[in-house]
Each structure stands twice: as structure tokens, then as C-alpha cells.
Design a protein around this nucleic acid. Structure first.
Lengths: 223, 223, 223, 223
DNA sequence: AATGAATGAGCGTTCATTCAT
DNA sequence: TATGAATGAACGCTCATTCAT
């Protein structure tokens, strides 16, 4: 038993953590989550290609066998990882939704994503690896489609309120903004020095400006 | 492409082709280019991680040793590859520059980049791998900086002519458009079915609309 | 030598022996020792440079992966090997210490070292390779220093008893004798026919004569 | 033509070096010597195992092909190298022979051998590799036999003059001293810090003392 | 005489995976 | 539930050698 910390301890009905006797129940998911956390950190630091199961196991304080016990294979693990990352993202999106204006919303979003130093690196690794792992690609495609829908509905609402331009259909706008975010996601690990807080602020402001309402006549694009 | 055969094959005593040793004709740079072409195709199809020197050699019709003869190591090869891809891109940019309006220019650019089925896949692999290869990252960063400058100057010229909006500084605009392109670059291999010609046309039109002149007052963003 | 078979072989459905995967019995250190024995034999026969991990594995009846499972890398393996050889030597020295006179001691030593046909060959390989492996060099240097100390104290005791010459400090004498042994160690694989039992006896006798007490006055050398 | 220096220049009958026209005569041996010099330096620095033909060629300013042109294979090259080293050693021995007493002779020998920083390293590499190269072993064995004869005759002469002990046959004495030298040769690269000039002086003095005449009765050893 | 392109075997090492325990 | 021994294929790379030029 390698670790003496919180493992096998749960606080069930009170505030106290109680050492569990016998076979711990419901630990399966917890263990998986633990391993996924380790995987996240390894991938964030060393990339997908260099994230061996051994490293993941070691970081989690387990042995190699444990990883293959909880995940049928590496692919399954990375897919579980992707799902869990997207679940986190969902929760985050949910939390910040309903913020007043676009600018506030963008800033909230920015704060939570750049707040996690593993967020972009892992995302960029998953995106890149998705090309070679159809199952992962499917997961990413599904989630992304959902996000674009959410963004589109947010943008549509804003268009209805007149707070952003409405000469471009909301779904195209969502697609554009989403792509912009992905582009920066990919580039930031390559030239991190370029993404100073100041520059990021400028870029965000420029995005706001880009989608600000246009005063003149409507011109429907993309049809 | 100097030699269509690329191998030194002689039929010695009969019909059999025998791989030649010894000093062949042909020049060093051409051979490197040949191998780079093979590497491009392998990376485009299988990705950087799965592009072993053996596969590259095989695709070029050589043995492993030949690859390591022309390139000190894999990293050097991929950097040479990146440089050559960027050189191609430079030439293409040069060729289409001076096109009249933005829309024509974008379409020309689109035609030549999507015309090469290896363009985006290789680019996305290079971008992704750059995170783990500082030398490659430097090459990418340098070239990208140059491209953003070029885009910015094109956009600035258009702003001066009043053909695109000038409420956002040209360099920020260039950064935004560049990121958008990268984002699509990354996503297209993951969900290729999404990027139908029709959708691409819509997206391009939406970009044109995005940067079209705003009729109302100027509002400087990002400073 | 804990297991005479050394492999986990089971006859599953018939007479065929199938290499086992999974968790075997037996302990880690015993397996390491087993592999070290194989490595010793390979190095003794083929030399360090030609002792590939594959050969070692094969000789031990394992696959390459097993060797790298037990030893992080080749260097670590050879160092472990050196340590174990020196440990053996320590034990041997301990056993023969306390023999009456120098001549008996030398002969006991001779018997046990030439008794093992792998002793000198492996030693000479380690010595030679030490030049290119600092970690190994350190191990050798440490052990050798200890041996010279032991030899020196044995010689000093003999000097005190008047059974060997005392005009040369014991530590220099130990150094000389040690070097002589190493010299023969290196040469014996090159011209083995020269080291007939008869010749070895003569050389040993000559060494005894060399360090025999000198009757005349003392002359301190080496200062 | 990579080099513009003294190559292809010979001073034949006068003092001036004259650029040769046409096929240079008698250069074959000179080229071989040049390559052997390079090989010596590579082996001295990196050891036999790491001395690739490429490195040798590069150090000499040639291409790989040149090395295999002048030497049928690596083995032949290293044998030629050994021969040339031994030839040098012969010349050196010849030069210092006839020195008065043993001590002066030893010191002269010491000066010329330790004076060349490549002497011991190359010697130890050759000795070690000899075990795996029968042809090299034969060369070494022959030369060493000769040296031991020379040493023996020098020692015999000294014994006749009464300047060294004569209770041990000269050939055994020569063998012992030779082995001692080899032992130090092997150890010096491993623990160079041990061989300070001061320590070397002490060791040499101790050797002189070891073979100094014994005052008492004669006792023939080793027969 | 000398080059340098190309081979192909082998190296140390990493790794996902399997599985008896 | 979890271990960890062991596999075997693949990787990047080095190298002596061959040989048309």
C-alpha cells in the first residue's frame, strides 16, 4: 500500500473522515479519476507521445498494471481523459453562463481557462492526437459541436438584444470565434512569450470590437 | 523534381533490378528534397509520432541508413521539412500578393492551400510537435511572425484604401485571422466532414464580412 | 544459485513449453544475479564491446526487455556486475586471510582466482572499459584502493615479523604487486600460451624472492 | 580538394618544397601514416570502441572512403597502427639504450613515454582490444616478447656488472617489471589523480630498490 | 587516387500489453 | 483489486563496408 493519505477515506454522513474497512465501495471511479488526473499532468508536461503508462502510473503512485486494470488500453484512457476534461469545461461554461454582456462573459471564461495551467496544453495535445485516434476524434467533434451550439445560442441572444452585430449568422460567428480560440491554443505553447497578459487583453478587446454591432445596413454573409 | 525514378537501378545480367551501391549521379540537395517529400507524405498520413525513419526511407525507396546519411537525426529532418514547407508557402504568398481586393486574395490563398491535400495535415502536425521541439518551435515562431507582418501590411494597405475596417489595428486583425486559420487547420483533420466546400465558402464570406468596413464612427480597440 | 531452470515454463495443453507472462515466483535479487551471471559469461567470452543486451538476455534465457526491466541501462548493469565481482573477491580475500606465510597466501589466492576461468577475462574487460565509464571507474578505483590497503596491511604485518623486506614502505610494495597482477591480467588473454602453470609458478616464486628480506642495511626508497 | 597545405608537396633533392605535378609518387605510405596519426589521436581520446572510421577520416581531413582505400578494414588499420606505435617505441628504446645505470635508463624511458600524452591511453586500448583480435594479439605478443628479451639482456648486463640483484633470472625480472608497467598503464586512465609526479617518482624509486643488489647469499628463484 | 552515396545489420532503449499471482 | 515480471516489436541511431564514379 504505497500511500497513507486520503485514499480509502471518505466522509460519508458527517464531517469526519472515517477509515474504511474491507473492500472500499465506489472507489472504482475515484481511482480512475485519480489516474486521469495523473495522466492529465503528464500529458500537459510531456505531451501525448511521451506520456507512457508507466509515467502516468508512477505519478499517481501506482504500478503499471493498475493503469491497465482501470483502462483497457491507452486509447481508452485518453478518451476518458478527454471526456473528463470536457465535463469540467461544461461545468465551467454552465457556471459563467448568464453573465450580462459579452465582454464580461469572455473575461470570466478567460479567467477560468488560463487559470488552469494545464488547460491549454492538454487541449492542444488532445486536438493534435485526435487526428490519429478516431474514437478520440469523435468525442472531440461531438463536444465541439455542442460548444459551438452553445456559443451560437449565446451569440444569437446577444444579437436579439442588439449587443453584437447581426449581419453574420450566429453559428458562423461561433465557428469563427471557436477557431480563433483553437488557433491561440495551439500557438501559445510554441511562442509563449508572445502571449503576455497585455497582448491577451488587446486580442480580447479586438475580438469584442470585431463582433460589436455595425451601425450601418445589414449585409447577410455566408449563404 | 529532377529524377522521376529516384533510385539507381541497373539490370545487370538479366531483368532483375539490383540496388546500386557506390557513387551515384544526382545531387545532394535533390536527394534531400526527395526524402523530405517522402517524409511529408508519411507525416501527412500518419502523423509525426508515427513517422519513423524507416517508414520515410521505405516510402522514398531507400533504406534507413540513407535517411540518417542525409539528415543528422530526426529533429534535423523535421526542421528541414518545416523550412521547406514554409519556403513553399512564401513563394505562394509572393505569387498571389498584389491581387486586387481582399476577397480575391483570400480565395487565391484558399485555392492553393486546400489544393494540396498534404498542406493542412502536415502543418497541424508541425504545429503540434513544435511544443516538444524547441528548434522547430523557433522556426515556426519566426516564420509565423513574418507572416503576421505580411498579413498586417496587406491589411494596413486595405485599411488605407478603405476596403476593410480600420477601427482595429492591422496587426491585431492579422493575429486574429491567423489564429482563425490555425484553428481550422487543427480541426479539419478531426472533423473533415464538417469542412465541406459549401461551409468553407460560408466561413470565408463571414470572415470577409467580419473585416468589412464599419460605416459608423471609429473605435480603436486594444490599446 | 536459487533456480536451476531459471525460466517459467509450463506445459499447457500438451508437451509444448510456453514462455509465461504474468507474475512469476522468485525474487528480484535472484533474477538480477541470474542476469548478471549471464552478463559475466558473455563479457568473459566476447568482451564488453560485443556484449549486447540481446546476447545477455539470450544467454540467460530471457528476452531483451527483461534485461532492461532489471537494469535501467547497460551502464547500470555493468556496474552492478563489477560490484558483484568485487564482492566475490572480497569474500575470497577474507577467506584466505590469516594464512601463515606470504607464499602460502599467494598460492591460495592464485588457486581461487585462476580457478575461475572467467575471473581474469572479466576483470580485464572491466578495467579497460572503466576508462570510458566514469561511474565504473569510480567503483574500480574505490575497490582497488581498498585492496591496496589490505595488501599493504598484510605486507606491513609481514614486515613486522621480518618475513619480508622492510626497506620499501608496505604501501609502495602493495602498489607494485598489485600493478604486476594487473599487468598479467591484461596480458594473459592476449598470450595465454605464455602463462603455463610452470611459468606461473616461476613468476610467483620470483615475486616471493623479490620481496624476501634483504640481509644487508636498510635503504628507504620512495620519499 | 579539401586541403591546401603540405599535401602533395615533397622536398626531394633540395631544400625547397616543390609542388608536385601529376601523380604524386611515394605518397601512399605518407597518407597511411597521416591516417594512422589521426586514428591514434581518436583512439587515445575516445577509445577503440568509439573510434569509427568516420571519425578517423574526419580528423585526418579525408572522407570515409579514403580510410577504406588505404586500409582493407578496421582491423588492418588498427594493426598497422599498433605496428607503427611499436616501431616508435623501438626507436625510443634504441635511443636511450647504453645509458649508464638502471636508474638513469628508467628515467629516460619514463620521460619519453609520459611525455607523449597519447602513449599510455593508446597502449591500454590496444592491449584491451587485442583480446578480441587475434591478429592484433599476435603483433602485441611478438613485440612484447622482443621487449622482454631486450629488457632481460639489459638486466643481465647489469647483473653481470653487479649493479642489480642477480638472485632472480633476468628474464623473470624483465617479465615482472614489464607486467608492473602494464598494470600502471591500465590503471592510470581509471584513476589518473593517483599518479601524481610525486607518486610516480616514489614508485620508480621503489622499483629501483626492488631490483637493487642484495648483499647476502644468492638464492636462485623460479626454477 | 579518392569520393561519398547507400546498405543493412546491429545497437541501447522504450513501450503498450499480457497475465499468473 | 492490484501487482510487477516479462514479452516482443518498434524506434532512432551508428557503423563497417561496398562500390560506381
Amino acid at each position: 500500500m504505497p500511500r497513507s493519505n486520503g485514499r480509502h477515506l471518505t466522509s460519508r454522513s458527517g464531517d469526519e473522515e472515517v477509515a474504511q474497512r474491507g473492500r472500499p465501495t465506489g472507489n472504482h471511479e475515484a481511482k480512475r479519476a485519480e489516474l486521469l488526473k495523473a495522466a492529465t499532468s503528464v500529458i500537459a508536461q510531456e505531451g501525448y507521445a511521451n506520456a507512457s503508462l508507466r509515467k502516468v502510473a508512477k505519478r499517481a503512485g501506482y504500478t503499471t498494471g493498475a493503469v491497465t486494470y482501470y483502462f483497457a488500453n491507452k486509447e481508452e484512457m485518453v478518451i476518458a481523459l478527454a471526456e473528463s476534461r470536457f465535463d469540467n469545461y461544461d461545468a465551467m461554461l454552465e457556471a459563467i453562463q448568464g453573465e450580462g454582456d459579452i465582454k464580461t462573459l469572455v473575461n470570466s471564461w478567460l479567467k477560468t481557462t488560463v487559470g488552469d495551467p494545464e488547460f491549454w496544453p492538454v487541449m492542444s495535445e488532445l486536438l493534435a492526437h485526435g487526428r490519429h485516434d478516431p474514437a478520440l476524434a469523435r468525442v472531440i467533434a461531438e463536444r465541439y459541436a455542442r460548444y459551438r451550439d452553445i456559443y451560437a445560442s449565446i451569440l444569437a441572444a446577444a444579437q436579439a438584444q442588439g449587443t453584437i452585430r447581426d449581419d453574420i449568422p450566429a453559428d458562423l460567428l461561433a465557428d469563427q470565434l471557436s477557431a480563433m480560440g483553437d488557433g491561440w491554443t495551439m500557438m501559445s505553447p510554441i511562442e509563449p512569450e508572445r502571449f503576455t497578459p497585455q497582448r491577451v487583453r488587446e486580442l480580447v478587446d479586438a475580438v469584442i470590437a470585431l463582433i460589436a454591432p455595425v451601425s450601418g445596413g445589414r449585409r447577410e454573409a455566408g449563404s
